[in-house]
């Protein structure tokens, strides 16, 4: 639908400018906002109240899964086909430790990687924000702040005016 846009996107030239702008946008009461930067900006994430500790939990879950899988696999193999090697124990943790360690790490990293993609809803090759005219600079050296149309305070006139007032270098209405 052409009449409900994705939102307004405002361009800033420096790291400090977008951090300051994000603070002002928050203070003005906008909540449904997003920012796009060429590299991670923890300061910006704090101001936008972004916090997600799920990656750490996913890593832990993957590690536990890998640990149990490796232990279970080795113990089952010894159980199903017991080999007596010079009277050495059938279920030695010391001999199992290497494969347990490797699979713990392998599955932790697999869970982390897949989790990163799933949480970020990637791959998604097309996204409305890519229609913003100068957005290709977001991966290079420009910083973009977006106020989405779903925000309760979103208004075509006043939001544009507000973004211009807080020092945006350029503003664009992004179609959905």
């Amino acid at each position: 639908m052409a009449d409900t846009p994705y939102g307004f996107v405002a361009e800033f030239a420096t790291e400090d400018a977008i951090v300051k702008a994000a603070r002002q946008v928050r203070q003005a009461g906008y909540r449904n906002i997003d920012a796009f930067t060429p590299f991670p900006l923890p300061r910006l994430a704090r101001i936008m109240r972004i916090r997600d500790s799920r990656p750490a939990w996913l890593g832990l879950a993957g590690g536990i899964f890998g640990f149990l899988l490796a232990f279970g696999m080795q113990a089952f193999v010894s159980y199903d086909y017991p080999l007596n090697v010079g009277g050495r124990p059938l279920y030695p943790l010391s001999a199992y430790a290497v494969v347990i360690f490797e699979l713990t790490i392998l599955f932790a990293v697999l869970f982390l990687f897949v989790g990163l993609l799933v949480l970020n809803r990637l791959p998604r090759l097309n996204y409305p924000i890519f229609n913003a005219p100068r957005f290709h600079l977001a991966s290079k050296d420009r910083f973009f702040l977006c106020i989405k149309a779903q925000d309760r305070q979103f208004d075509r006139e006043s939001t544009a005016r507000f973004l211009r007032d807080i020092g945006a270098v350029s503003i664009a209405l992004v179609p959905s």
Partner: peptide, 21 residues
């Protein structure tokens, strides 16, 4: 590039994931 767009929430999760890895 999987459609990476540099969103702040994406970077936040990415940083955490990358450091744990």
């Amino acid at each position: 590039a999987l459609g990476w767009r540099g969103s702040t929430i994406h970077w936040h999760r990415w940083s955490r994931t990358y450091r744990i890895m």
